[in-house]
Amino acid sequence: MATFKEFRNSVKPNWCPGCGDFSIQAAIQRAAANVGLEPENLAVVSGIGCSGRISGYINAYGLHGIHGRALPIAQGVKMANRELTVIASGGDGDGFAIGMGHTVHAIRRNINITYIVMDNQIYGLTKGQTSPRSAEGFKTKSTPDGSIESTLSPLEIALSAGATFVAQSFSSDLKQLTTLIEEGMKHEGFSLINVFSPCVTFNKINTYDWFKENIVNLESIPEYDPSNRIQAMTKLMETGGMLTGLIYQDKSRKSYEDMVVGFHQEGISNQDIQISEADFSKLVAEFK
């Protein structure tokens, strides 16, 4: 069985020292080992932005696609070979701005992949513009007078869209984050894990200290029941989305792959694609 070290490679990330993304990378590597994966059976698909580089920093099959489209690419990978474990990953701009349409529909579709959003509430790679996750009044290069658009609450949207697994964590809490990623990978359906990942260079508001002060860890609420959707929504609203832990999970709904009539357990890419003469003749005859 592979250890977390086998999910490492020799590429040095180009993230700034202190970036929250380092911990997320480590958590993915640990979680992959903890659930018993081999590197060749993991595919990491990422979007564009600082966080998008993550697919190149993990020893697994990696696909670094185009901005905002990590989710449809990842869903395509899973549909082609459901025997693979598929992680999609990207930043808050990737998933909640340009790719928001895909996020909502990936949630609805419930294909068995894990989506990890590295949420730093700013556009880092383009050097400091506002994000849909930026707080109102947040001053950036593109909002010099402060953002006047309301802040997006992705987890409330996820719940509304029919999510079957919603979690949130903080990059400093490696233990919780690793556990949540493991749970997400084990979940039979689409799992969304939003991770607060501070941008030490461009976001001077949502810092490590700021998160530590404002986060409400669900571990501190023993009576919290993650199977209760209404409670999940209420708690998110009460805390302004600053909750961490497993916020909601619906174990009853089957994954998309399990609901497609005739879909095999064997991945499409491992099946024989040559059509038989008998089958072909039957198909052709329907046009007579």
Partner: peptide, 13 residues
């Protein structure tokens, strides 16, 4: 993009 992901993973899509 889904078709591209599927081809990457080996299905004809």
């Amino acid at each position: 993009t889904m078709a591209i992901g599927a081809n990457f993973a080996g299905a004809r899509s």
